[in-house]
Amino acid sequence: MKILVPVKRVVDYNVKIRVKPDGSGVELANIKMSMNPFDEIAVEEALRLKEAGKASEVVAVSIGPAKTDETIRTALAMGADRGIWVKTDEAGIEPLTVAKLLKKVVEAEGPTLVILGKQAIDDDCNQTGQMLSALLGWPQATFASKVVLGDTGVEVTREIDGGLQTLRLDLPAVLTTDLRLNEPRYASLPNIMKAKKKPIDEKSPADLGVDLAPRLEILSTSEPAGRTAGIKVGSAAELVDHLKKAGVL
């Protein structure tokens, strides 16, 4: 049983991004990039299923321009068996397009499970897994915080608005990860060395027959309305006075 894990290269979560002064986008030159944190959780979950003897192979796939292979290598260093790189000229491929490309990869690879992150922390779209699942006609469980894999189905506990919900899905299925699913491992030095020898198969969007033309035209990118620091107060009594004056108590 094979597990496919789509991983996205994004600006590291610790970086405070800057909007370009001309409003044309976000400054990406010389910025630390990492694997999307939710995708690390997805890789970890796949590896745990493999280590538990429930999966035979973990394949990491990423869609993106030059250096995207570094992110695939990170997944290989964590323990994924091999990688697939759908090489594009630019970053920022829209979720609908990513889902169409992933569908082609799924059709070629035949995984039983696809585990994605629930959300990429750059575009914050929270769409790709659901779109892939719909295009494949497979059942989905988003926001997974616990995954119990059986032979014919998977039971998934999900983080929803009021608490937790458990679903049972037939296989094959698409899952997306939430923060509490697991704590991803760090790649050890020997594993980083080993990862260098693991294969990464390169594909072009044209090979897969998917048109990359975006559907959303980005008109501008701007700074959010800022907030300025207020005042420090010395006591609870003083605070309550201020809150009364502000009309919020």
Binding site: C125, Q127, Q130, L132, A134, R158, D161
Partner: peptide, 23 residues
Amino acid sequence: STAVWKSVMPRIAALLDVMQVSD
């Protein structure tokens, strides 16, 4: 953008071949 609709809407969008605008 609630948990229910975050899960449902991208499916609708994909099946309509529309790119969703989130949030």
